[in-house]
Design a binder for these strands. Structure first.
Lengths: 344, 344
DNA sequence: CTGTTAGCGCGTTCAG
DNA sequence: CTGAACGCGCTAACAG
C-alpha cells in the first residue's frame, strides 16, 4: 500500500471551455456550440473540439451553466425519515423518472421537523432547483418555495396552504378496509395506533378507521385510539399501556414503524399473534412477510407514488401555469397470518 | 381544494445581493460583507442590510458562490445499492458528520456498475464537489476524480490504483470468526456464499473463511465455495443447487442480501434452522433479529464506518498533501439462534 | 469602513 | 459558419 503523499491538489485546475478552445484553435463560443450541440459549427471544427475535449477529460462546470440559465438540473427531494424503507422506496421511484428526464435528484431528510424542512427548502432555493418534491411536515417550506417561483409537488400527504400538485394514497379507504377485515373476523375491541400530526395521511387513516367501525356496527371507544407524536421516546410503553388498560383484541398500526413497535411489544410479552391478538400494519415492508406469522397489511404502491410525483413535477416544469393536479392512488389489503378470529 | 392557476412562475425573479444593496442604499460588496460576515461593515449598515435581506427573503445563489470559489459545499457520495440498508446506514453516518461541518451530502447510486460510477464521478466533477466518498466498484471513477484534484475516500472496500484514503472493515477477521464459530459447533461441511467481484471486501471474507477452516483443521472443499456475480438473476437457484449437490450443514452468507436469499430458500424448502442447517450472515440488518430463529451474524459498525469516512474526507480537504490514511474497523460476531450443533 | 473593478466559466447575442 | 462582447450573482483586491 502506497504511502506516498498525494500530488498537491490545488495545482490541478479543472479544464474549461476556454482551455479546449485554445487547444483546438477556436474561440470559446465555437467550442461552446460544438460541445453543447446548439448552433452552427463546421464538421471539421466540431470533430477537432470533441476530440480535444475528450482527450483533456473536459467536464462542463455545472455552476457556470446554472448561473447562466438561472436554474439547475437538480430536483430537490425532502423526506421525513431517510431510514424508513417507505421513504427510501419513494425516493427510488422519483429517481427513476427524473433520471430518464435527465435531472439529478438530491435527497434531504428533515426528521419530520418543520424547521429542518424549511432549511431544506432554502438549500434548494440556493441551488436554483427548478422544483422540489416533498413529504410535507409543515406549510412553511412549500410557501417559501412557491413564493420564489419554485415548483412543488407534495407526496404522501397534503399540507400546503397554497395551491400545488400532489399525489396521495386513499388512506381513508385503506384504513376502512383494514378495520372491516378485523371486524369481519369477529373483533369488537379494535385499537387504532396512529401518529399525532395534522397530516392528511393520519387524518385519513383515522377517518377510515371510524368509518370501518361504523360500517361494522361497532361502537367507537376513544380509549382504543392512541395517537403518538412523531418523536415520542416512549412509543412502546404507550403500546403496553394500551394493551394493559384497554385489552384490545386487535391492533391496527397506521404505519410501518408503529407496526414494528407493536410487534416488538407483543413478542416481548409472549403474546401470540393472532391467537391472543391480531395485528394489521400500513405500508408493506420486507420484514412483514418474513416474520412468523407474516403481517397482514395495507400495501401502498410506494414506488409508483414516487414515479407519479416526479411525473407531475416534470409536467409542471413544462407548464408553470397549469391548474394544480392531485392524484390519488389506491392501497390494497394484503391478508396474511397476523389476523385471525377474535379470541374474546 | 383550489383549482385556480398558479401565478406565472417565470415572473418571479429570485432576489439578489444587488437587490438588497440597492434597497439598503449600499454597494453590492458591502452587502456581501454584511451577509457573509467577512470584512468590515459598520454596525448601522449591517443591521440595515440584514433587515432588508430578511424582509425580501434573500437566499444566496449557490452557483454564483461556487463559480467564484471554484468549489462547492456539496460532498458527493456514490453507493452500490441504495435499497440495501447497509448502504443506507453508511449514508446516514456520512451525513451526520458532513452536516456538522456545514457540507451538503449528495448521494448517487451506481447499481454496482463501473460505468454508472464513472457517470456519478462526472456529475460531482461538474458540480465542483471538493470531495467524494464512495464504495468503489471500479477504479476508473477514483482515477478520474483524483486526476482533476478532487479528494476521494473509499469506504467498505479498497480498489483504487491511485493512492487515496479509505476506511474498511476487517473482513478477514469477521469471516474467520464466523467460520470458526460454525466449526466449533461441529460442522465440517461449511459452505461460503460470496460475491464474485474483485473487491477487497469479498476477497477478505473468502480469505477469512479459508483461514477459519484451516484453524479448525478442516479441509477446504471448493464445491462448498459459491461465488455469485452482482447482478445474477438466479441467486436462489444457485443456492438450491449448492444444497442439493453438496449438502452443507452450515452456510456462511457473506453479505445481508445473500443471507436473505439463503433464508428464503431454506424456508421455502421447509428446512429447519438450525436443526437441519445453520446460517450465519454478514452485515446485521433489522430483519435478522426479527425472524425466528434470529440470525447469527457478523455485525459491522456501519454507521461508524460512514462517520469515519466523512471525517477522513474533511481531514483531507484541510490538508490535501497529507499521506493517505487507511482505517480498519472491527466487526463483531453476534451469536443468535440460527447456528447450532451439526445435525448429522 | 466603503465603493469600484474585475473575473469565476458558460452561453447567447450580434456582427462579421 | 465564426468570434467578440457581455452578463448570470457573488466576492476578493484594491483604492479611497
Amino acid at each position: 500500500m502506497s504511502t506516498a503523499p498525494l500530488e498537491h491538489d490545488s495545482l490541478v485546475a479543472p479544464v474549461t471551455l476556454a482551455d479546449i478552445a485554445r487547444e483546438a484553435g477556436t474561440s470559446p463560443s465555437t467550442a461552446s456550440r460544438a460541445l453543447s450541440g446548439r448552433g452552427y459549427v463546421s464538421e471539421a471544427a466540431r470533430d477537432r473540439l470533441l476530440a480535444v475535449a475528450d482527450r483533456l477529460g473536459y467536464v462542463p462546470n455545472a455552476s457556470a451553466r446554472t448561473l447562466k440559465h438561472r436554474r439547475s438540473r437538480v430536483v430537490g427531494v425532502v423526506l421525513s425519515d431517510l431510514d424508513n424503507q417507505f421513504y427510501a422506496r419513494l425516493a427510488a421511484g422519483i429517481e427513476q423518472v427524473l433520471r430518464e428526464a435527465n435531472y439529478q435528484m438530491m435527497v434531504l431528510g428533515d426528521n419530520s421537523e418543520p424547521a429542518e424542512e424549511v432549511e431544506g427548502a432554502r438549500t434548494f432555493l440556493a441551488m436554483r432547483a427548478p422544483g422540489v418534491i416533498m413529504t410535507p411536515v409543515g406549510s412553511g417550506a412549500t410557501e417559501l418555495l412557491r413564493s420564489q417561483g419554485t415548483a412543488v409537488v407534495e407526496v404522501d400527504r397534503r399540507l400546503a396552504s397554497v395551491p400545488c400538485d400532489a399525489v396521495l394514497i386513499d388512506n381513508e379507504r385503506g384504513a376502512r378496509e383494514a378495520t372491516m377485515h378485523l371486524a369481519g373476523l369477529g373483533h369488537t375491541r379494535i385499537a387504532l395506533l396512529g401518529v399525532e400530526t395534522d397530516w392528511t395521511s393520519d387524518a385519513g387513516r383515522l377517518q377510515g378507521y371510524r368509518t370501518g367501525l361504523r360500517n361494522a356496527r361497532l361502537p367507537l371507544d376513544e380509549n382504543l385510539v392512541v395517537r403518538i407524536p412523531p418523536h415520542a421516546p416512549d412509543i412502546e410503553p404507550r403500546i403496553e399501556a394500551l394493551i394493559d388498560d384497554h385489552a384490545p383484541t386487535a391492533i391496527f398500526a397506521a404505519n410501518n414503524l408503529l407496526a414494528e413497535h407493536v410487534w416488538q411489544v407483543l413478542r416481548r410479552r409472549g403474546l401470540r399473534i393472532p391467537h391472543d391478538i391480531s395485528l394489521v400494519g400500513f405500508d408493506d415492508v420486507p420484514w412483514m412477510a418474513m416474520v412468523d406469522p407474516p403481517i397482514t397489511v395495507v400495501e401502498q404502491p410506494t414506488l409508483e407514488l414516487g414515479r407519479r410525483a416526479a411525473r407531475l413535477l416534470l409536467r409542471r416544469l413544462g407548464g408553470p401555469a397549469l391548474a394544480p393536479a392531485v392524484e390519488i392512488l389506491q392501497p390494497r389489503l394484503v391478508v396474511r397470518g397476523s389476523t385471525g378470529p377474535a379470541s374474546l
